[in-house]
Design a protein around this nucleic acid. Structure first.
Lengths: 218, 218
DNA sequence: CGAGGATGTTTACAGTGTCAACAGAGAAGG
DNA sequence: CCTTCTCTGTTGACACTGTAAACATCCTCG
């Protein structure tokens, strides 16, 4: 009760703002998610959010954090299979399913970083493309750990890092293409993205286990 | 001379606008690319672009078309190797290299569709997530054909569609992750994205050729 | 030379992110 | 109890955006 819960003026505005912003995002799209609209939805004035968030990007980051938590939970929940190959497939399917079920959130989380502060009066305008991973740092990092552990069970150690990057790239790319409707013209693209994810990740993991360089097979 | 070339009032505004917008995009980022800024850079008034583009999204689409052409050329230029496996790797590297060299353009081309018309007075606000591939229709479709042909040389016909989707997903995902700086915390992520692309696509193609279900190997 | 259409300008409006100055509510201390 | 101070929220303003309507200009065609 002493931390930040019960009522000052509004109650707890911060949480209300995040929830309102998330609703706005998922029901009306990114372009409808403005700071003023969130404030309006929370029943406060346009400047009130600035008592809880430094700028629009900070609100968006808070919304994205919700998404990271949900995604991490889903990946963990999909990691029940004992066979690492099956587990990897299920994780990939869960990743793509998340993206398809919550496309706007997914894009906010893993799209272009800090696309929030746009048309202000003073625009610093550019950022060096180097050091800026404001996204799935620690939260989705756990998801990354889960993925990494599963890949470790499938490939030799010298190819592990490459395989992890490849696995993430595969499902992330499929998720992006599906979410952005880029698979519609393709031969296999008419299938449900989840089914596609299953096929694609199965193909990938099959290749992983089949292409062992050490002298074991044959 | 009768088509649209020599001078009316400005010369050919349309091309100037596209060029200005492209420069703005690549030198100052998406958030600096406004219709008014493009007009300003072209030396005309804010409303002049509307004689050549229906709205901001149309300008962005024209800019993206430049990118599709460049990407297609690069993919074609990378397709010189005789060995389909090597050719596939080179295509993937070229794709990732394009994304890393022109990140803003890449995101405009293959990011969220129609993210142009944002804060107008009347906002229709949402689009059903179904039929909307305004991106690499015909242009990058040629790139798709090149990719498809190469994959066809590596896998059996019943897995071909899946393999094509997987290949595109793999390089597209890697490109997105690299462009958005999402690989910096990863074990193998410190390497140059091009080197990563080579490793990842090599691993993938190796798996493709190794995991043949018909009774040929062994 | 006059009509018409293509092209560009001015003005205006609604909406946005954000700064500055102000107002109310709840706690701290006399 | 009253004062003061610090959160919290409000009002007003500014610079900027995309875009509609009305007007001006210039080229071309008849």
């Amino acid at each position: 009760m002493s931390t930040e819960k019960a009522g000052y003026h509004h109650g707890n505005l911060r949480e209300t703002l995040v929830r309102t912003a998330l609703t706005l995002l998922e029901e009306s799209g990114v372009e409808a998610l403005s700071l003023r609209a969130a404030a309006r939805g929370a029943g406060v004035s346009a400047m009130a959010p600035y008592r809880h968030f430094a700028d629009k990007a900070a609100l968006l980051a808070a919304v994205a954090d919700q998404g990271y938590a949900d995604l991490r939970d889903r990946l963990a929940a999909a990691d029940t299979q004992a066979d690492p190959r099956q587990a990897l497939v299920e994780q990939g399917v869960a990743y793509v399913r998340f993206a398809c079920e919550r496309p706007a959130l997914f894009r906010l989380m893993l799209g272009a970083p800090s696309a929030g502060a746009a048309p202000g009066p003073k625009a610093p305008a550019h950022q060096p493309p180097g050091p800026q991973p404001p996204g799935p740092k620690k939260t989705a990092g756990s998801g990354y750990d889960i993925l990494s552990a599963r890949v470790a069970g499938l490939v030799a150690e010298d190819r592990r890092d490459t395989a992890v990057v490849a696995a993430w790239s595969l499902v992330h790319g499929l998720a992006c293409l599906a979410v952005d409707g880029r698979l519609h013209g393709m031969p296999g693209g008419m299938a449900a993205p989840e089914a596609l994810a299953r096929q694609v990740t199965s193909l990938f993991t099959a290749g992983l286990v089949a292409a062992r360089p050490p002298s074991v097979s044959a």
